Amino acid sequence: MEINKDQFKKIFLTAAAIILFYWALQNHIEVADWFNQILGLFAPILLGLAIAFIINIPMAAIENRLLKAVPNRFNKFKRPVSLVLAMLLMVAVVVLVMVIIIPELVRTFLIIKESIPGFVTQVQDFLNDIIQYFPELQSEMTITIDWAEWGKKLFEWIQRGATVLAGSTFSVISATFSGVFTFVLGLVLAIYVLLQKEKLGMQAKKVMYAYIKEDRVEHLLRVLHIASRAFSNFFTGQCLEAMILGGMFFVTMSLFNLPYELMISVTIGFTALIPIFGAFLGCFIGAFLIVVTNPVQVIWFLILFFVLQQLEGNLIYPRVVGSSVGLPGIWVLIAVTLGGSMFGVLGMLMMVPMCSVVYTLLGESVNKRIKDRKISKHKITKKFNV
């Protein structure tokens, strides 16, 4: 059997890939370090592309809808105006959240500071009432707090923290400067990319058509289009879902006269940007704030949270986010779980649209294979006992 040039090339590339993969597994620590260095080197570029992608979502909506009726002679101004309006909109949202949260946070800490002694007294009275009914628990539930000892430990902890902070001041300043510098470079790159996105896209396609087979370029462009649409729809749906959930909490907490309704609603809405599990973080923060000032109301808050969470998780999220990315609710949950276990919060955010792309491409491939193999619909829909 003769091996032609193309077959030899495929065999060689497959063997090289297997050897390279085996070597990477044997030297995974060095490979990870090298990969981190590469990521650090290209961090401003990657950050700039990420910022450009996020800003492009509202910018495209403004340019294609809000400024659609602008006369053609002003077309050259539509892109810069859309970019400025999109950036101002995002800055306004961040400022609004900070304006709402920071004053409420300061007021909350002041209230907590004044409420802690009363809270401790309430806990002690509650335990004393239990002891009256169950005297045998007195030895286990007697609580004495030495405030002088607590104050001494707190002072020592602050002193050690100040020493560590003073020793790491230079590294903190250096890291902060490096982060700000990277962000500024990324933002400048993002602005350039957004202003020239059609030209850059055309240049990229010219390079691909020059060095890659035409059918593969068409397939790659289609995959990139599906990925772009999935990520864009996911971030839009996630923001809309967070706003809906935050609004639901504000209305219901106001109706039931629960404290910190504005701050807790904004916090839950902000943390809900993390798919599925983010709202639980907001619940923990809200429960902590309420339990210090009024332990009884925290029970009603938790009941309210789980009712709204069930409504949001089973009705709103699958329809707002799941439908926007074309991914069923069960696969959204699996994607978030896998992404969180592998890459943390960032994995939760990125895995849903990535799974949406795989789900779309795999579905098309499966349907094509079934059609080519002439499998009847009756065989697929036929029920079977499990």
Rank of each mutant, 00 (worst) to 15 (best):
E2K: 13
I11M: 12
L13I: 15
A17T: 15
A24T: 13
A24C: 14
A24P: 03
N27M: 05
H28Y: 12
H28A: 13
W34M: 09
I38W: 12
I38G: 11
I38F: 11
G40H: 08
F42M: 08
F42G: 04
L47A: 09
L49H: 04
A50V: 14
I51N: 02
A52N: 04
M59T: 04
A61Q: 07
P71L: 08
K76G: 05
F77A: 14
F77Q: 09
P80M: 07
L88H: 01
L88Q: 03
V91R: 02
V95Q: 11
L96S: 15
V97G: 14
I102Y: 08
V106N: 07
F109G: 03
L110D: 09
L110F: 06
K113D: 11
E114S: 12
I116K: 04
I116M: 09
V123G: 05
F126H: 12
F126W: 14
N128G: 02
D129T: 07
I131A: 11
Y133A: 09
E136V: 13
Q138C: 00
Q138W: 01
T142G: 06
I145T: 04
E149D: 11
G151S: 14
F155L: 14
Q159T: 14
A162E: 09
V164F: 10
L165T: 12
G167A: 09
G167T: 05
S168H: 08
S168D: 09
I173R: 10
S178V: 03
G179R: 09
T182W: 04
G186M: 04
L189V: 09
Y192F: 11
L194K: 01
K197V: 01
E198Y: 00
E198F: 01
G201S: 06
A204P: 05
K206H: 11
M208R: 06
D215N: 13
D215Q: 11
V217N: 01
E218K: 15
L224M: 13
H225T: 10
H225K: 15
H225F: 10
R229V: 15
N233W: 02
F235Q: 03
Q238M: 14
M243I: 15
V251K: 04
M253W: 04
S254I: 00
S254Y: 07
S254N: 12
L255H: 06
L255N: 02
N257V: 10
L258C: 05
P259E: 04
Y260N: 00
E261P: 04
M263A: 13
I268N: 01
F277S: 08
A279L: 02
L281N: 00
C283I: 05
C283P: 00
I285E: 00
A287F: 06
L289A: 12
P295W: 09
P295R: 03
I299F: 13
F301N: 01
I303H: 01
F305P: 04
L308V: 03
Q310H: 06
E312F: 07
E312C: 06
G313R: 03
G313A: 14
N314W: 06
I316H: 00
R319Y: 08
G322Y: 03
V325K: 00
G326N: 05
I330Y: 11
A335I: 02
V336N: 01
G344R: 05
V345L: 10
G347E: 05
V352G: 03
P353V: 00
M354C: 12
N367E: 13
R369D: 09
D372C: 06
I375A: 04
I375P: 05
H378G: 06
H378A: 13
H378V: 13
K379P: 03
K383P: 02
V386C: 07
